[in-house]
Design a protein around this nucleic acid. Sequence first.
DNA 1: TGTACATCAGTGAACGCGCGTTCACTGATGTAC
DNA 2: TGTACATCAGTGAACGCGCGTTCACTGATGTAC
Lengths: 209, 209
Amino acid sequence: MYSDAVTDGISREIQGMKVTKAQAQANRARIVETASHLFRERGYDGVGIADLMAAAGFTHGGFYKHFGSKADLMAEAARCGFEQGIAKAEGFDAQAFVSYYLSRKHRDDRADGCAVAALSGDAARQSESTKAAFAAGVESMLEALANRSGESEEDALKGHRARRIGVISQVVGALVLSRACPDDSPLADEILDASRAEILARLSMPLDV
Amino acid sequence: MYSDAVTDGISREIQGMKVTKAQAQANRARIVETASHLFRERGYDGVGIADLMAAAGFTHGGFYKHFGSKADLMAEAARCGFEQGIAKAEGFDAQAFVSYYLSRKHRDDRADGCAVAALSGDAARQSESTKAAFAAGVESMLEALANRSGESEEDALKGHRARRIGVISQVVGALVLSRACPDDSPLADEILDASRAEILARLSMPLDV
DNA sequence: TGTACATCAGTGAACGCGCGTTCACTGATGTAC
DNA sequence: TGTACATCAGTGAACGCGCGTTCACTGATGTAC
């Protein structure tokens, strides 16, 4: 019937009525994804449960039907953000990855940018569960950098884990420092530019140095 | 008189009475310094005015006799932390600086460690005043690294600002990432070790690469 | 130098607000017969 | 297949708490005479 069709899907939530199990699971996933963007943009303490649920299209009361606590959600939202980052890095080689990572666009788009960089400050003071998710996120970045560093079997970066750790550390550090400078600060741009140029030069060097 | 001598100085605050202008200024400085340590350890949102004032030896009501707001104090506390870091770096050459910076001791001692690394996550969401202080702190680190990189006039690091920016970015990034990993995580140590070895190797290389 | 008075750093109670969390309730879903 | 009932995702009011901030008050400091 028409009325059934209309009350299916998204409009169901508008009515505030009970939804299908599948719909409920999709709603939960939407909350996690919304949280992953909001936490990156405003930080853990900058996002309230009511804000978050409203942004996801719900009222705040239902939150605890899905999550045990705000801290629990943080761990899930972090994992969600890391997965998005990996997916985004697909098909980028190491040079393209670094160029994008240290671009003004990426710096200025916290909500959709790298979750490792955006959450690193908060993660240090979160639960062990969130920190474990964070470590897994760093491992994913390291793996992605190895896989994407070129087609050649002898690719300089592949297999040299220490070097990749250095690259990840530097791009994350540069992004975090650039974001902490005033918006119009020349230093903010300079940090990105200097690190980008330096890393790209290093990537083109032989590995045995 | 004896009674005057006893009521001078620190005991004055215990009595909760009015103090000398000089004493008041010293008290204010103590609040700023206490804040600089607490903010580094627990983050901006993790420290309340009452906590802070108690840690400095006062009740919370007096706070607004010294500062316009918590955000204002943040800017001052950040500046204070940066100055401490510069003072601490005195007499270290670039190698010693990197070795200390990426040590487990430094990572595990947030309260007394580098304010740039500890506050970078918070600073991005603070006032422009705090961000400006942050940028000045980064500039100080860059300058300190140039001055401390050796005695020789032709020292490889001196004058090569871009390279120093790369070093600062990487040490800050490695420290921040290491702190965000679980306490017993092998990755947390590996990040420090890999970046330390890599930077020290780079510092010993000629500059024209 | 001594006296009278204004200043103001510090106290501690109080304020309003927003937070994370709880709860009684709703009503379609999903199941048992 | 149809009917009766339990489930539970989502609602929205309410809770208690801690936060940043304000305020009346205190009394030694610091100043004017």
